[in-house]
Design a protein around this nucleic acid. Structure first.
Lengths: 93, 93
DNA sequence: CTCCTAATTAGATAACTTTCTAATTAGGAT
DNA sequence: ATCCTAATTAGAAAGTTATCTAATTAGGAG
């Protein structure tokens, strides 16, 4: 896992919106595509970036590809924020 | 506050390192610069991006400019992650 | 085996980002 | 007033990213 790749992946609004779409369960690439004005090719590119960042994973089924959130990476990123905040909270010890 | 601008600001490793430097208190632009191989002008550019994202704020004092973390924005960003993770935890309700 | 549908990959282009050097601003000290 | 130090801004070059259209891959159905 690389913070560099994860944060870069999170920096695009379309990719964050994809993560939001997956909050309530897996969704096929085509269904995800329908939520956006951009082409399926562009959505596919964003899915690849999210996959490389381990923020999502895919399951192939028939000729569909389903994507789903990988919550364990979210935990690691949150820990980074916690650390930044915590040291600050203990400021006046 | 805009998630767009905050996440973009967080996507650069130098900028995340600046935030880490500020964990234990404010620091002048020059002192921050010393921690990096890049020029002061480049560091100044990164500070501007972080400031625009409200992740840091500045205090002018004599002819120094001190930067410090703005933890309230960190809270808001963490809430975004919490939301993403939470709906997933309740999956089997 | 041919056709359809789902999705990706390739290649090009435009837009945005990072970095540098050089110039500028501004406060304080002599 | 002049000079020094701290820091920023301007402008240019190089690198990276997002997007499109067109082509390709691959599974399933007839």
């Amino acid at each position: 896992m690389s913070f560099e790749i994860s944060f870069k992946a999170l920096s695009d609004p379309a990719r964050r919106e994809i993560l939001q779409l997956l909050k309530n369960g897996r969704m096929s690439a085509g269904k995800i595509s329908q939520h956006f004005a951009m082409t399926a090719a562009t959505v596919s590119y964003h899915l690849k970036v999210l996959k490389k960042a381990d923020l999502i994973w895919e399951e192939k089924e028939k000729n569909f590809i389903y994507y789903d959130l990988n919550t364990s990476i979210l935990e690691e990123i949150m820990a980074w924020f916690e650390d930044l905040k915590e040291n600050r909270t203990n400021e006046k010890r």
